[in-house]
């Protein structure tokens, strides 16, 4: 390419800038439409009410059951989020525009995983206090910090798997069926580890002694790396 061409053609955004543009697009859309957030709020309220009335729990029993109920809610809320996100990309085929843009393909994965992660964090910020109030569970600052760490680590795994599967669904044009079918079995290790760790925090105020933290970290790493490596292959084939 000649110097003249280089001067007239602006530099395309790199990995981080490209990821941020993709993430910002999803955030702008959500802040303007509040489509996914509205569904999430209604869903979370409904689940919290049903669980609170169905299981009349208090004290130590509530602390024992709460992690499982919380992660089940996060799981279903994340499926809602991924389905909505995939629908946004499908309508108008916006994902085609992203694939044609000169940003690294990995930036699309990172941006989409980032927006899925942000969605999950919002879900956790909304759902957790709701459940704590309904089940009468009080947490100290130490417990809160550990729970936040587990929630963030769990969200990394869910976001990586969900983003990759949502892209497979775009390519396969299979709608949300494949997303749900593939997502649930793949996130089982993340869910088990995150639930065990959350349970340990609420009952022993520590992360416990089992291998759960290592397992959670390992699956976060495996899924994030797999998503990173497979994404380009998937979109180009």
């Amino acid at each position: 390419m000649t110097a003249t061409r280089a001067a007239t053609k602006p530099r395309a955004p790199g990995l981080l800038r490209g990821s941020w543009l993709v993430l910002r697009k999803d955030l702008v859309y959500e802040l303007e439409n509040r489509e996914t957030l509205a569904v999430l709020v209604v869903f979370s309220l409904a689940v919290a009410f049903v669980f609170a009335f169905a299981f009349d729990l208090s004290g130590a029993e509530a602390r024992r059951f709460l992690p499982g109920l919380l992660w089940m809610t996060f799981l279903f809320a994340s499926v809602l989020g991924f389905s909505k996100g995939a629908a946004l990309e499908r309508r108008g085929a916006g994902y085609l525009g992203l694939l044609l843009a000169p940003i690294p393909k990995e930036a699309i994965f990172l941006g989409k995983a980032g927006s899925a992660f942000a969605f999950l964090v919002f879900t956790q910020l909304f759902v957790t206090p709701l459940f704590l109030v309904f089940f009468g569970v009080k947490v100290g600052s130490g417990e809160f910090g550990l729970l936040a760490l587990i929630f963030l680590l769990g969200s990394v795994g869910l976001a990586a798997v969900g983003t990759l599967l949502a892209q497979i669904c775009q390519v396969a044009r299979s709608g949300d069926v494949l997303l749900s079918l593939g997502y649930f079995p793949l996130v089982v290790p993340v869910l088990i580890a995150a639930t065990q760790l959350s349970s340990a925090v609420l009952t022993t105020q520590s992360l416990g002694e089992g291998p759960w933290l290592q397992l959670l970290l390992a699956f976060d790493l495996i899924y994030s790396t797999a998503g990173w490596l497979l994404f380009r292959y998937l979109v180009e084939e």
Binding site: A12, N33, L88, R91, G92, A93, G94, L100, P102
Partner: peptide, 18 residues
Amino acid sequence: DYRREVALLTHELGMYEE
């Protein structure tokens, strides 16, 4: 470097309807 030199217009809009 190639994709910033090329544009494709297809039957699909390639943009965000929302």
